[in-house]
């Protein structure tokens, strides 16, 4: 058998095999160590709920608040995972100098973008499902609007995956990875209604929160689960889609120009 003659790209507009390979590689590295990567977030989520359960009275209002918190904790855990796998994978590959494997593969910037984001979302979905099952210990979960659960879950994770990609491409050290996490993403989600309705905030902050994309993700996801409306679901959807488009375009540009990736 003679080796096939080398030539130009022989597949069509989309390198399907390459894309699937990238997704498989990224998703499996994100879930390889399921002990820590799935059990860790599950234990943390359980802890949050246990603390609230124990601090509150064991009556109907207490249960209502737990039911309110649970969807927030689920989408928060899923999003955190999407950010961690996106950014972590890039920083690790850059440090180990195996980023070349990704740059050498015959993938276009758009294929890379889709590949990474979908793999990170798969990781997020796995964590989200595990956390949702675990929260059933304390909370009563519903599915009032399944489309909203899927849509806002995905949009929230895509947002985190894109931020993670940008951070991963830009960051040179793990410090920067954790700084964005601790000083930006966690405050944005904790303050925007994972644990309390934003009506609890003073008026000025309520207005500020309208500018926080995570508020829209959490409010929309909670609307999907419990059916309680906080703001217009359509508005949440539009804001998130818009922000994701901008971030996606940005990441695409960086992939195309090879910013911080190619010499």
């Amino acid at each position: 058998m003679t080796a096939a003659k080398l030539g130009i790209r022989r597949f069509g507009a989309l390198n399907g095999l390459g894309l699937v390979t990238l997704v498989k590689r990224e998703a499996s590295r994100g879930l390889k160590d399921y002990n820590y990567q799935l059990l860790g977030p599950a234990v943390t989520a359980l802890l949050y709920l246990a603390v609230f359960r124990l601090a509150l009275h064991n009556d109907e209002t207490g249960q209502l608040l737990i039911n309110f918190i649970a969807p927030g904790v689920i989408i928060f855990s899923a999003c955190e995972k999407a950010y961690e796998s996106a950014a972590g994978s890039f920083i690790f590959d850059k440090h180990e100098r195996i980023i070349a494997d990704m740059l050498m593969a015959p993938l276009t910037p758009i294929e890379r973008l889709i590949g990474y984001v979908s793999a990170d979302c798969l990781g997020g979905i796995a964590v989200g499902v595990v956390v949702a099952v675990v929260t059933l210990v304390f909370a009563e979960l519903g599915a009032a609007h399944p489309w909203a659960i899927v849509a806002f879950g995905l949009l929230g994770m895509v947002f985190h995956a894109l931020v993670g990609l940008l951070v991963g491409i830009w960051a040179e050290k793990w410090d920067q990875f954790s700084a964005i996490h601790t000083f930006l993403l966690v405050p944005l989600s904790f303050l925007s209604g994972v644990f309390y309705p934003i009506e609890a905030l003073p008026g000025v902050f309520q207005a500020v929160m309208q500018w926080n994309p995570l508020y829209h993700a959490i409010a929309g996801f909670r609307y999907g689960m419990s059916g309680t409306e906080a703001g217009d679901p359509l508005l949440h959807l539009l804001v998130l889609a818009g922000v994701n488009l901008v971030l996606g375009a940005w990441a695409y540009r960086w992939f195309r120009s090879g910013y911080k990736l190619k010499p």
Partner: peptide, 14 residues
């Protein structure tokens, strides 16, 4: 953050 979260979520309930 924890202070803000717990006070806002529980302050008036506990």
């Amino acid at each position: 953050l924890f202070l803000a979260v717990f006070v806002l979520a529980l302050g008036h309930r506990v």
